[in-house]
Structure formats: C-alpha cells, structure tokens
Amino acid sequence: MKFGILLTSVYDASVDARVQRAEHEDLVRTSEQLGFDLMVCGQHFLGSELRYFQPVPWLTHMAQVAPSMEVATGIVLLSMVNPVDIAEQMATLDVLTDGRAIFGAGLGYSGHEFDAFGVEPGTRVARFEESLSLVKQLWSGAEVDFSGKFTSVHGARPSVRPIREGGIPVWVGGQAAGAVKRAARMGDAWYSPPFPTHTELAGLRRLFLDTRAAHGLSLDGDFPLRREVLLAPDRVAGMDAALERYRARYETYQKWGLSGENTPIESGERLRADIMDRFILGSAAEVADGLAKLAEDLGMTHFVYKPHWPGLPHREAMKQLEEFGTKVVAELTR
C-alpha cells in the first residue's frame, strides 16, 4: 500500500496566502520524512470560502520541497479546461518531476465554475470524454488529427510530452455510477472521493471491476482512495472531533453544487450515522484495522490522507499527520 497526503484548502482570502504555502510545504516535507509516496492537489476556480491554488504550478513547487514523492492532480476539472493546455501542462509537470506525475481528472459540479468557462453543464460528460481522448493522443508522440465537437487539432506532433515510461497514469474521479463506469473505460484507475458510504464504496468498486472486465481491461491496476480519518484515543473521542469538523467543509461543497446519489446527509438526527458511514475513527490501531480492511476487501493500493480541516490549527493537523505516519503506517507496513 502507498500513502498520499492531500494538499487541501482550509482558508479563504482573509488569511495570508503565504501561510497556506508554508503549511503545505510543512505537510509534504514531513510526509516525505514519514515515508509517504504521493502528494495530491485538487482544482477549483473562483472559490471565496476556500482558496484553491492551481494544481500544476502548486505541485511543481511542492515537488521541490519533497523530491522523492509522486505528484497527482486530484482532480483537474477536465470538462472546463482546454485539453491542449492541460496536456502540455501535465507533460511539463512530468518532466519537472522526473516522470512522477499522475493525471487525476473529473467532471466538476459547481455552477459558477461552468458559467465562468462558458460551459453548459449538460455537455460536461461529452466534453470530458472528448478532452481525455485528445489529451492521450497529444501525449502519444504520434501525429494528431482530431476533429471533435468542442476542440480540433490537425497535423500536430507536440514536442511537449511526458517522460514517464508508459505515459502519465490517468485517475478518473467521481462518486456516481456513471463516473465509475467512465473511469473503468477511459482511465487507469478510479479515484474515489470520501463521500460514498462504506457500503456504497464497496458497490462502486464492484461496478468498476465489472465494467473493466466487460471491456476486456486489466483488473490489476491501482485503486487510490480517500476516506476521512480522525485519530483519537478511541472512537467516541473520534466522533466528537468529527462532529466539530465535518459540517463546515461539506456545507461548502454543497453550497458549490455538489450533489448526487452519494451526497452526505447533513440533517441533525442523521449526522452521527452519516459520519460513521463515511469516516474511519479512533486509535491508531483502529484506523490501521480499517485501512487494512479496505486493502483486503476492495484492493485499495493508495490511501490519500487529509489532515487539514477548516478551523483546525495547523499544529493540530501536524500532530495527526505525525501520529498517522509513525503509528498507522508503521502498523500497516508491519
């Protein structure tokens, strides 16, 4: 099993941007020392509640801080961005990290982002599939003639290409059944967000594998996964911590337009049940047991850990990271 650190946003514009940069540097430096393999950075635009720096330049800088770690976009909003631009950005990132880039991509869900890019939400699936097909062709080294509904390229043989042997792996994100099938058909892996319940996650994983099998594709690839983890003396204390941190972040996602069959339920009477259905809580031994079960039952190959939460001081997040790295990872490795 490999371990990743999620470089997420917990601040808005009222906090000096250099604080966020320094804290993320702290996270990746410490993660590398603890033996983590990967850093992951997502993408949003025009966020006011949470400040997302753009992932390719951000990861390029952070890779200099922790030069042994792989770097993954988790995720690029491929239905909105220009595929020629992102193909060359990702290839550049791969070169600058000596072939350690991973391309995580998804549809996006926020209305204000679609509006800003002039994209009709109803076209997002078609745009995504067309763009991903073009990105792969632009990385291939062959001459590209591509006539799409949204983008066309003729007689191109780009010299900006990845150096990673076998090309840049593609992780397709999403939580709905259609996204999982798309990941199976078009990606090298399904990158699961933390929103599905434990039961839903198992069903979606089966759907991914069944779809791969139906298309004659390998079933032995990566399965990168996010679950929310809170370390505490026991599960009761972990639940108390989760209640403090859960609502603020997910209310922001829902305000931005996150919805679907696996959207968290946030009504008061269901909140505790919601957390238990989606989080791994408790002592280092209990968390290690939960992650080991995911690896054994579902074939998880990468676990992406998020220590930062809105309102949680950075020093407390670093304590969680240190405990996760020294106790949970050590237990799983052993």
Rank of each mutant, 00 (worst) to 15 (best):
A87S: 11
N262V: 15
L27D: 06
L298T: 10
D145C: 04
W58Y: 14
Q137C: 00
P224G: 06
P233A: 05
A179E: 14
G4F: 02
S152K: 05
S48P: 00
A213H: 03
G187M: 06
G173F: 05
V144S: 07
W190K: 11
D37P: 05
L78P: 06
H112A: 13
V10P: 05
S110Y: 13
H61T: 00
Y246G: 00
G148K: 00
Y52Q: 12
L34R: 06
S259T: 10
K327Q: 15
E244V: 02
K149D: 11
T151R: 14
Q33K: 13
V144M: 01
V81F: 08
G4K: 06
D234A: 03
Q64V: 01
A179T: 10
K136F: 09
S48V: 14
G325Q: 07
L281H: 00
G104Q: 08
M90S: 01
S79T: 03
E143W: 00
L219P: 03
P196Q: 11
V19K: 01
P313D: 07
Q64I: 03
F53V: 02
G325V: 02
I75C: 14
Y246K: 06
F208A: 01
S133H: 07
G111N: 15
V153I: 05
E266D: 08
R18H: 03
V135C: 09
H198E: 08
D297I: 04
G155H: 13
G260K: 06
T211D: 15
D145G: 04
M239G: 04
P193W: 07
A63S: 15
Y52H: 15
A66L: 04
M186T: 12
K181Y: 09
M90F: 09
N82M: 03
Q64W: 07
F146P: 03
L294Y: 02
V19F: 03
L38V: 09
W171P: 04
A295L: 00
V172S: 14
Q137R: 11
D277R: 14
L209M: 09
L50E: 10
R206W: 07
R315D: 12
T211W: 11
G118R: 12
R157W: 01
E228N: 11
P313A: 00
R127N: 06
Y11R: 07
H112L: 08
A292H: 02
S159I: 13
Q20L: 05
Y52L: 13
G166H: 09
Q20G: 01
D85P: 00
E331D: 13
F208V: 07
D222G: 09
W256F: 13
R18C: 07
T301V: 15
G257Y: 14
A87G: 02
D37Q: 12
M39W: 09
L332P: 01
Q254C: 02
Y11A: 02
A189H: 06
D98C: 11
R157T: 11
M69N: 08
M239C: 08
Q137V: 04
R226D: 05
E120V: 13
R29C: 02
D210A: 13
L217N: 05
V95K: 07
D234L: 02
E261Y: 10
P162W: 12
P307D: 10
R205E: 11
G311A: 05
L77N: 15
P194D: 14
Q43G: 07
F279W: 12
W256V: 01
L93R: 07
G187W: 06
M62A: 10
F208G: 02
G282V: 07
L294F: 01
A184K: 05
L258H: 12
L298E: 14
K306V: 14
R164D: 00
M69K: 11
R182P: 13
H24V: 00
